[in-house]
């Protein structure tokens, strides 16, 4: 494992998803998603993607607005790095790589359920009568 790229993957994932690194770690999906991105992309293009992401993170010294601006301009456009940034966002939010569910775990850890105040259907059930109340997080 390229530890630099792995660290970049985690940090850039946090900016791409709007979730903290700790939240992402808590899903247990950092390693499998890192691997899925590695295994499904041209290594050369991916190498440039990580290089660009690392540069963005280093140059803006943690200034969130600056990082977001750079991400929008240099990672998000479809013309950049075969759309890897969008793939990473969709992976985190839906657990799907393309049209396929990556794994049982990825289905259960999809972030979209978290932002919806819900839970993945068929997993992480909230208990009898929970649906009659607003979600605990509210």
């Amino acid at each position: 494992m390229n530890t630099n790229n792995h660290a970049t993957f985690l940090t850039i994932s946090a900016y791409l998803t709007g979730f903290s690194e700790t939240d992402l770690l808590g899903t247990g999906m950092v390693d499998p998603y890192y691997a899925a991105i590695r295994d499904n992309n041209d290594p050369e293009v991916l190498g440039y993607f990580y290089q660009e992401a690392a540069t963005i993170l280093a140059d803006s010294h943690g200034d969130e607005a600056e990082i977001n601006e750079a991400i929008a301009a240099r990672l998000i456009p479809d013309s950049c790095y075969n759309g890897i940034a969008k793939t990473i966002i969709l992976l985190w939010y839906t657990g799907n790589y393309g049209n396929d569910v990556l794994s049982t775990d990825s289905y259960k850890e999809a972030l979209v359920w978290n932002v919806a105040g819900a839970h993945p259907p068929g997993a992480k059930q909230p208990g009898y009568g929970s649906w009659a109340l607003p979600p605990f997080s509210v």
């Binding site: 791409l16 998803t17 940034a85 932002v115 919806a116 105040g117």
Partner: peptide, 13 residues
């Protein structure tokens, strides 16, 4: 992407 995406989804869904 990022917080904007998260806020948008947690508003509409």
């Amino acid at each position: 992407f990022g917080k904007q995406l998260r806020d948008h989804l947690s508003d509409i869904i």
